[in-house]
Each structure stands twice: as C-alpha cells, then as structure tokens.
C-alpha cells in the first residue's frame, strides 16, 4: 500500500486524519479501534511498530498496532484506559475522528526468525503488540520451526483476546501455554507467573528466537528464564515502552541509555539493552 499523503511522509509531525470505523470492547478498560484514513490508504507497517494517536484537545500517545499487517484497510489499535489520552481514545465511538502519525519504530524480526523455533511470551496488554507477529507467523506457518505462545494475565477475567487464544489453541501446530497470577477455584488452567511456563515449553534454546512483550518487570523475569534455559541474549527481543513524544528520536523523552525507544525500538535485542533494564536512573 502507498503512503496516505506525501505531506505526511514529508513532515512526521503532521498527523493524518483517521476515522474510527469500528470498536470492540475487549475488557472493562480495554478497547480495540479500527481506524481508516479519511484520504488515501493506510501506510504499510511491520509487526511491532506503533502509531502516535492524537485525541483532539486532549493529547497524543504512542499505541502499538495490534492488527494484521496483511489484512484489511484499517490500522487496528488496542487501547487500555490508563490516563487522559488513552481514556479519550478508549471512549471513542465509530465515526469519531482523530489524528495519527506513523507508523514508527522497529518491528519484530519475523523474517529473520524464519527457519527457527519461535517462543512468544506475552503478559497482559503485551499480547496486543505481539498479535501482528503471531498472525504473520501463523499465516506463514511452514516457514518456522516450533511455535510456542506463552501468555500470562492477572486473572481469567482479564485475559486479552481470549477467543482468539482459544482459536489458536485449537491449531495442532502451535503450543499454547496460558497462566494467570491468581484465580478462583473454578479456573482449571495454570496459576503462576508466565516465566514459569518456559521450562515446560518445547523449543531448542540454541536455535529459537524469543519475542517478549509485557510490563517491564515481567520482561526482565522472562528474559532471565530464557537465558537460564540456554537462549542467548542476541536471540531475545523485547518491546520496550517509554514516554514517547516526537516518535522520531528528536525530543529525547524516550531516551534509554544511548538509545531512543521510539527510533531504535520499541523492539530491541536483549544483549543490547539487557544491562540497562536494572538501572533505576534510566
């Protein structure tokens, strides 16, 4: 697909106008929005990239793309209401307009991972930025070795994309592990933190590639478990999150040591950034 408007490509600060085509409530505080450009077609994007969504009169926030890059004409974003901007976005109804800049940032290395086992570890809303990569891998299943998806959430009632998880679980070519932090006795699945699922998963740690997304503490614990399983840091990819403003590496709000999350990330290799994860000042 071509860029929406040459002016947008020329000026990354100029938002394009998009219309909310459809909304779907995922959880009590989480909504998925399908956004269509008012003019032209949406730009191509890589799984793992993000857009800056601008709720007029409220502000702008970086939101990962949660839809399939090869499907549909819309940008799909899953937004959790955790603040003024995300709240305004999550309350939008079909027909509402908003500004959009993007897509920005690095993506999951889905092409480089071909031929390898892929271990995808998601926590909470972290499943949303991974969803485009999961869809891509499942759409091109033959290109990959074993595929493992491990997902952790707070409790069974706060499980994102539950129906889609159930569909993926019905496939015979993907190993799915789901766990929750706590549950009532009616839950028959796993209870425990998501890194604890890694030692039970079937993959070759020396040949596998891991995609990890979730709260940063969860990613740190997960990376530790993957390293303990024998995987090298250069094979572990994390999707980082910081306060992104300009999205093109100019303003410095998302500086992370010598890197900028918006430009050098959000998807980054553990051997590059792992040492910074425990530095409190960053």
């Amino acid at each position: 697909m071509a860029a929406t408007d040459p002016a947008v490509a020329a000026d990354p600060f100029l938002p394009a106008l998009y219309r909310v085509a459809r909304t779907r409530r995922e959880l009590a505080d989480t909504v998925t929005l399908e956004l269509l450009p008012l003019e032209g077609v949406r730009p191509d994007f890589a799984p793992g990239q993000f857009n800056m969504l601008y709720a007029f009169g409220v502000g702008e926030a970086a939101i990962s793309i949660s839809g399939d890059a090869a499907e549909g004409a819309a940008f799909v974003h899953t937004v959790r209401n955790v603040g003024a901007v995300s709240g305004a976005l999550a309350r939008m109804r079909p027909g509402a307009t908003l500004g959009l800049r993007g897509p920005f940032g690095t993506g999951w290395p889905v092409a480089a991972a071909e031929g390898a086992d892929v271990v995808i570890v998601a926590g909470g809303l972290g499943l949303a930025p991974l969803r485009p990569a999961i869809r891509h891998i499942l759409n091109h299943r033959r290109r990959y070795g074993r595929v493992v998806l491990l997902f952790g959430s707070r409790n069974p009632g706060e499980m994102l994309f539950r129906r889609e998880l159930e569909r993926w679980r019905q496939r015979l070519d993907v190993e799915i592990g789901v766990t929750v932090d706590h549950a009532d006795p009616s839950w028959r699945g796993n209870v425990g933190v998501v890194p604890s699922l890694i030692r039970h998963a079937s993959f070759d740690p020396h040949e596998a590639v891991a995609f990890v997304c979730g709260p940063e503490v969860m990613m740190r614990f997960t990376a530790t478990a993957l390293l303990a399983a024998g995987m090298g840091g250069e094979r572990i990819w994390l999707s980082m999150e910081r306060n992104m403003k300009c999205a093109i590496g100019l303003c410095g709000h998302c500086q992370f040591g010598p890197t900028f999350i918006c430009k050098d990330g959000p998807v980054m290799r553990h051997d590059v950034i792992g040492g910074l994860l425990s530095v409190r000042e960053i």
Binding site: R154, V193, P195, S196, G214, V217, M218, F221
Partner: peptide
Amino acid sequence: VKRLHATRLQILDVYGRH
C-alpha cells in the same frame, strides 16, 4: 528461591493499573 521470585512478581501485580 524460584518460588520466592515468582511470588514477588505476583505481589507486584504487574498487569494491574499503575
């Protein structure tokens, strides 16, 4: 030790609203 680490992660309630 592993269970202690896991319990710490659960206590942090990392998937909650922060």
